[in-house]
């Protein structure tokens, strides 16, 4: 099997004994950090975290205020604190339905997207087939044409396929955003997985599909976690396609549903912020679980396999 020339030198260095115990090294690293360095490290991270959650804190605090207190000439943290915005969003609107729709769309986009981009990325990384390099360029080109201009023609195509106001329309549209990036990303990771593992698998009698599925994919766990999270969030937060292709309230996704709260005149900031908090929590949870897979990298996977 011809091996991709794009493999970085570092990967060659590990090609052989990739099974060292990483834990010993990392623990040593921690014990050697001086107290001053620790303070600096944690200080920087705390500052960064504060900046990261600052605007989110504004969203959270706003969601606890009545509408008139959100934009006001007096800046306050709390004013007339109430949970009624949440109960309104949860009971008076179709929010639970939107939530379900979003979960369905995001889950399918994630599953199909990962599968398609992993197979594509693997093929491009491992096989020197004709059309390999143009394919990567083609993926880039798909990202270059502005979405705003693509919406009308895509609508026409989806209308011909009878997919307007259905969830498959959104899943397909989101795949066009997610797959090119994920294929690129996964190809990069696959490049750094030594081909000696593939060859070993081939000697054991694995075909190319089995090698990919049973050997390489498990090794690429961190990459799969990153791309999974990316596809999930792409589908979770997208508005432009949803607002064009979805027409009835019971098919809305969350992000698009949220937009209903802020019409041009008389926006309901209190409901928008409350709903935004409810939307952010599951996304945060998904990441919390996905991030565990970020740590178990090549070596850990190698140990298991």
């Amino acid at each position: 099997m011809s091996r991709s020339t794009a493999t970085p030198p570092t990967a060659d260095a590990v090609a052989g004994p990739a099974l060292a115990d990483s834990r010993r090294v990392t623990r040593a690293g921690r014990s050697r950090r001086s107290p001053a360095m620790s303070v600096l490290l944690h200080g920087t991270l705390i500052l960064a975290s504060l900046i990261a959650i600052g605007p989110i804190a504004w969203v959270l605090l706003s969601s606890l205020k009545p509408g008139y207190a959100i934009q006001s000439s007096e800046l306050t943290l709390f004013r007339d604190t109430t949970l009624s915005n949440y109960s309104y969003v949860l009971t008076e609107t179709n929010f639970p339905r939107w939530f379900l729709n979003s979960v369905i769309v995001a889950a399918f986009t994630m599953a199909i997207g990962i599968f398609l981009s992993a197979t594509t990325g693997y093929a491009v990384s491992r096989f020197n087939f004709p059309g390999r390099r143009p394919l990567m360029m083609v993926f880039l080109v798909t990202q270059m044409f502005p979405v705003a201009i693509l919406i009308v023609p895509i609508y026409t195509i989806l209308a011909r396929l009878g997919l307007i106001n259905t969830m498959p329309a959104l899943i397909i549209a989101y795949l066009t955003i997610a797959v090119p990036f994920c294929a690129w990303m996964l190809k990069g990771y696959f490049d750094s997985i030594p081909t000696s593992l593939d060859e070993a698998a081939a000697l054991d009698g694995c075909g190319p599909f089995a090698t990919f599925w049973r050997v390489v994919l498990p090794l690429a766990r961190p990459a799969v976690a990153v791309t999974a999270f990316y596809t999930f969030l792409t589908a979770w937060g997208e508005v432009a396609y949803a607002s064009a292709f979805i027409q009835t309230d019971n098919k809305f996704t969350l992000a698009y549903g949220l937009q209903q709260f802020v019409p041009q005149f008389n926006p309901q900031w209190e409901y928008l912020t409350a709903a935004a908090v409810l939307v952010t929590i599951p996304a945060g949870l998904v990441f919390f679980f996905a991030q565990k897979h970020l740590v178990s990298g090549l070596t850990a996977g190698g140990t298991k396999g």
Binding site: T26, A52, W236, L258, L272, V279
Partner: peptide, 29 residues
């Protein structure tokens, strides 16, 4: 965040939160 340290998971989640809020809501914020 790649170094082993206390509260690493917490930092990771906090720092990634801006990505989890729908972009147009953050834009309004």
């Amino acid at each position: 965040l790649n170094r082993p340290m206390r509260a690493r998971g917490l930092y990771r989640v906090l720092l990634v939160l801006p990505w989890a809020v729908p972009a147009f809501v953050s834009a309004f914020a």
